[in-house]
């Protein structure tokens, strides 16, 4: 096609350059960089707790915090993918418990080799994601309802399968590798932490640099527009649930390492903590906006508040209170950012 027109710019050209107030500028910057506000909160929280609790900034304390957030961190990767498609997964913690029970019981009770038990557990986790995804995309049920239902289903299956019993693994078992630490000076990380970080790298890469990631963001923002652009949005949404299943499987492996086995009653908090991490991390519950690095920061913020308040000697109930206030603040900020004007 050849450039033909030589006419002067019309008055519409000037519409492009409207002046913004300082507050609108802040709103714009936060809109473009969803991970920026959680990063500021994290830095602020670390500084405040560093002053309030004198042992907070010690390497041992910081290492422990990172180890403690590894499970929620890994689960929250999966939760981020689902929330980016404007869905939500209330069953994710119980799916992880179920997968960890399968891994631990196969290994401890049936004598299945650790690596095989791990793979079977991950397959179970993927199947839980596939079930949620099929119910959401093929039968067109709201994700909230689907995962509320599967939450109960996975809980029941876990309790029936484990007969309410905790499974304890041999301390040298392969499945417990994720709990083993590597120390560099007084900093120590577990293999579980490294595994979680690897998960963030891989999913972060896929979201930012592949067509799949682009389609996920597009589908979450406007499924109808994405359909018209030729994207198979049902498949994209299903894939989010399936990939989340892989993250659930990895989280199950990490939780085995943390508790030395599997506990059928451990999943309740993880559902909500994973959503909390995603939301505090700046990902919009309405879909299409957010980054996994924000989720990582969000998971760190939750942990910093819990550990910081504990180290400062505050009543543990205030930790829960703080988490609740953080979530409401994060969603309020998101609502404000979403009202960004051109």
């Amino acid at each position: 096609m050849s450039p033909t027109a030589t006419e002067s710019p019309s008055s519409a050209d000037q519409l492009a350059s409207r002046k913004h107030t300082p507050i609108e500028r802040v709103q714009h910057i936060l809109h473009r960089n969803p991970a920026l506000s959680p990063l500021l909160v994290l830095v602020l929280a670390v500084i405040v707790f560093g002053i309030v609790a004198d042992n907070f900034l010690r390497p041992e304390a910081l290492s422990l915090m990172v180890q403690q957030m590894a499970v929620v961190g890994a689960l929250a990767v999966g939760q981020t993918l689902i929330i980016l498609t404007a869905g939500v997964d209330l069953s994710i913690g119980m799916a992880m418990v179920l997968a960890s029970l399968v891994m631990a019981k196969l290994n401890a009770d049936q004598g299945v080799p650790g690596f095989i038990a791990l793979l079977i557990g991950i397959v179970v986790a993927i199947l839980t994601g596939l079930l949620n995804g099929i119910l959401v995309t093929r039968i067109n049920l709201p994700p909230f309802i689907v995962t509320l239902g599967t939450f109960s289903i996975f809980t029941a299956i876990s309790l029936l399968y484990a007969q309410g019993q905790t499974v304890t693994l041999d301390p040298d078992a392969f499945l417990l590798v994720t709990g083993k630490t590597i120390s560099i000076g007084s900093v120590s990380v577990t293999w579980g932490v490294l595994l979680m970080l690897l998960l963030y790298l891989v999913v972060g890469f896929a979201l930012s640099y592949t067509a799949w990631g682009r389609h996920l963001y597009a589908t979450g923002d406007d499924a109808e527009a994405s359909d018209l652009a030729g994207i198979d949005t049902k498949r994209v949404r299903l894939s989010a649930y399936v990939v989340a299943g892989i993250a659930v499987g990895i989280a199950a492996w990490i939780v085995c390492g943390r508790v030395g086995g599997a506990d059928p009653n451990a999943g309740l908090n993880y559902n909500l903590l994973s959503i909390t991490a995603v939301v505090i991390g700046g990902t919009s519950l309405f879909g299409g906006r957010g980054l996994v690095v924000g989720t990582l920061i969000g998971a760190l913020i939750v942990q910093v508040f819990q550990s910081g308040l504990a180290l400062a000697g505050v009543d543990p109930n205030y930790q829960v209170l703080a988490t609740g206030i953080l979530v409401i603040l994060a969603v309020s900020v998101d609502q404000w950012i979403r009202r960004v004007k051109a």
Binding site: H215, Y217, A218, D221, D222, A225, I231
Partner: peptide, 18 residues
């Protein structure tokens, strides 16, 4: 209704799906 995604930039929208 334009079928553009608000959260993507101009280049991403022009190549969306392809």
């Amino acid at each position: 209704d334009l079928a553009l995604c608000d959260n993507l930039d101009i280049v991403h929208n022009m190549f969306l799906g392809r």
